[in-house]
């Protein structure tokens, strides 16, 4: 169940909007950040808040790559596989991260800390190879840099949510 505070805030925004449907991505983000991912419960709540059908929300949720319909870890690593990053590592950064964390691309570590997702060019080509962790850009990646960064993240206790 969505906490009353979030529900109230969203309902107020929706009521004030001339075109409530415009807010659907924002509402999906909000519920995703609350639940960790956009689970079926959350999806139905989005639909209810915006007077859409679950199908109509699903049509959008399954279109976008930053909406997660399956569980993700505390940190989502969007590893860029754009052509510029590829030129520097030809997927070996992704391979390295996956090996380091012991997961396949798209999977989450058993401790629920990290999800690794290959992603399109993140627009950090001047710092290639690059990745995005919860919406924050990191680069240029080297094995040492990755080791250090993931180690630091493990020790962070607060949620670092820009945009998962």
């Amino acid at each position: 169940m969505l906490p009353e505070e979030i529900r109230h805030r969203l309902e107020t925004r929706i009521a004030a909007s001339a075109h409530p449907r415009e807010l659907v991505v924002d509402v999906m983000y909000e519920l995703q950040n609350h639940y960790g991912f956009l689970n079926d419960v959350a999806l139905r709540e989005v639909a209810e808040l915006l007077q859409l059908t679950p199908l109509e929300v699903e049509e959008l949720a399954t279109f976008y790559d930053f909406i997660y319909r399956r569980p993700v870890g505390r940190f989502v690593l969007h590893v860029c596989d754009g052509v510029v990053c590829w030129m520097f590592e030809e997927q070996s950064a992704l391979d390295y991260i996956c090996k380091l964390l012991g997961v396949a691309p798209g999977e989450t570590t058993p401790d629920g800390q990290f999800t690794v997702l290959p992603t399109v060019c993140v627009g950090y080509c001047d710092h290639a190879p690059a990745m995005l962790i919860n919406g924050k850009l990191y680069g240029p990646l080297t094995p040492e840099f990755i080791d250090r960064t993931l180690e630091e993240l493990r020790s962070i206790s607060c949620d670092l949510v820009l945009c998962r």
Binding site: H19, R21, E22, L23, V24, V25, D26, M28, Y29, L50, E59, L60, F63, Y64, D65, F66, I67, V120, C163
Partner: peptide
């Protein structure tokens, strides 16, 4: 500010307009 949820096609003007409106872009 309208936050997108990704996808290259949203850069296409008519798709972007649909994305803003909350339709499949």
């Amino acid at each position: 500010v309208h936050r997108s949820a990704g996808r290259y096609i949203c850069g296409e003007a008519s798709a972007q307009v649909r994305a803003i409106q909350g339709y499949r872009p």
